[in-house]
Simulated assay, not measured.
Amino acid sequence: MTLLGTSSIDVFPLALGGNTFGWTSDEATSQTVLDAYLAGGGNFIDTADGYSAWVPGNSGGESETIIGNWTSSRRNRADIVIGTKVSQHPAFRGLAAANVRGAADASLQRLRTDYIDVYYAHFDDPGVPLEETIEAFDALRTAGKIREVGVSNYSPERLQEWIDIATRRGFALPVALQPHYNLVKRSEYETGLAPVVAAHQLGVVPYFALASGFLTGKYRSEVDLRGASREQMANAYMSAEGLAVVEVLDRIATAREVAIPTVALAWLRSRPGVAAPIASARTVEQLPALLASATFELTELERSDLNEASARVNG
Rank of each mutant, 00 (worst) to 15 (best):
G102C: 12
L95A: 07
G57I: 12
S73D: 14
K218T: 05
R74L: 11
P129G: 12
N153D: 15
L249W: 00
E285A: 15
L3W: 15
G83N: 06
Y207M: 11
G170N: 01
T254G: 09
R186I: 05
T133G: 01
A294G: 05
D10A: 10
L173T: 01
E231W: 05
L243Q: 07
R147C: 06
R230Q: 08
G94H: 05
F21R: 04
T84N: 00
I165D: 03
G227V: 09
V274H: 04
R101Q: 12
R93Y: 08
I82R: 02
G203Q: 00
G242Q: 03
H200N: 13
R251M: 10
P129W: 15
P156F: 15
T84H: 02
L130V: 05
L287G: 05
Q160D: 14
I278A: 03
V100I: 15
D114S: 12
W162R: 01
N99K: 10
L159F: 15
F123E: 15
Y154E: 06
E247L: 07
F44D: 03
V100F: 12
A106K: 00
E257G: 04
T283S: 14
G192K: 07
Q88I: 14
D117C: 12
H200T: 01
S72F: 12
T84S: 01
N76L: 13
G57Y: 09
L111I: 12
A276C: 07
E131D: 14
Q109E: 14
N58G: 03
V197Q: 05
L130Q: 02
I67T: 03
A259F: 05
N153F: 15
R158M: 15
G170C: 07
G60K: 01
S187H: 09
V118Q: 02
A211K: 02
M233D: 06
I45F: 11
K218L: 11
T299F: 09
E308V: 08
T29H: 09
Q88F: 14
P56F: 13
A172I: 04
V175E: 02
P195Y: 13
G213E: 03
I134F: 11
A266H: 02
E64I: 06
I80N: 00
N69D: 11
V313E: 08
S63Y: 07
D125R: 02
R251D: 12
S229R: 13
E64Y: 03
L298H: 05
Y189G: 04
N99F: 08
S30C: 14
I66T: 03
S229K: 10
A199K: 04
A244M: 08
A136M: 08
I163A: 11
V100Q: 04
T47G: 05
R271D: 05
D46R: 02
R110E: 04
G41I: 08
G144V: 06
E302Q: 05
I45H: 03
H200A: 15
P90S: 14
Y120I: 05
A279K: 01
A48Q: 00
A311Y: 06
L249A: 07
E161H: 12
E247R: 04
A294H: 00
N182S: 11
R110L: 07
L291W: 06
T254V: 12
E302R: 03
F92T: 03
G40Y: 10
R271Q: 13
P179Q: 10
Q201L: 12
R186K: 04
V263T: 00
V274E: 02
G41K: 01
I163V: 13
S239C: 14
I9K: 02
E300K: 06
T20E: 08
T84E: 03
S52H: 10
A98I: 11
P156N: 09
A289C: 07
L306H: 03
G5S: 06
F44S: 04
